[in-house]
Amino acid sequence: MRGFELVHPASLDEAIKLLDVDDPTVRPFSGGTALMLMMKTGVFQPSILVHLGGLEAEHAAVAVTPEGGLRIGALATLTSVEHSAEVVRVAPVIPRAMKRLANVRVRNVARIGGNLAHGDPHMDLPPVLSSLGGAVTVRGPGGTRSIPIEGLFSGYYETVLTRGELITDVTLPSQRGWASAYLKCTTRSADDWPTLGVAVSLKVTDGAIAESRVMVSAATEKLTRLPSAEAVLKGANAGEDAVARAADAAAAEAETIDDARGSAEYKTELLRVYVKRALGEAIRNGAVQ
């Protein structure tokens, strides 16, 4: 990992400019927890690392939007998100998920933008944030655009971000009336990467499920939304029967993959169970006021 240059842009535009090159050895560096692993094992040999830490002052704020949602600066550390009073109020599922996300030291330095941009399908936040209807604001040489998080990932460790593009913000709509839950399943030690992550959000009106988002991660090649499970839930009573049918639909729909944490077949069965449990937990958690 020798011989690279660590540069410190003074502005986001300068960072984008530095990154707008046709060279995969030039990469942005924020918390660095994932990139350092790749560098230490020789998987990634950088020539230039564009350090974004100096931009923290402008791009790490957590704020409630006028609509009652959240805007989180991409350079906010996971710890600052976990402990933000605004996040606790608007989207309590996020701090609940954080307790068992990586570990304290990683959360202290990893940034929410980098966590999403890394494209690792085993991360906990992509399913959680996408189930909340979250989006990222992305700035690049061609300007600014917004991408729903459920559409951010194009494959295994791949995202739709293009050359020079950086995530600047994560935005969440108001969660009023939505009930959410995230469950993950590990099959080796408790602190292992998840074998499966399931995040669900439900909007329940008069006991019936008006709308839902069901997301699966880790067991699939990339973060995946499960519309057939959502279709089962739509209009159904928020009870055991609908939950069980949605779980079956999820299991039938998701394309799980084999790895050291379990066979695809087993993960499909886990998915069935965890969708059921996550929906149950979301209903028990109740809607955010």
Binding site: L37, R188, S189, A190, D192, A260
Partner: peptide, 30 residues
């Protein structure tokens, strides 16, 4: 740990999980 999950996995003689990211030992939750 040896009983429940530790396991050196192989692909044609190559250990495929020779690190703590993939060879899990018991932690405080276990």
């Amino acid at each position: 740990g040896f009983t429940l999950f530790e396991n050196m996995e192989y692909d044609n003689g190559q250990v495929t999980n020779a690190s703590f990211a993939d060879y899990k030992i018991p932690g405080i939750h276990d």
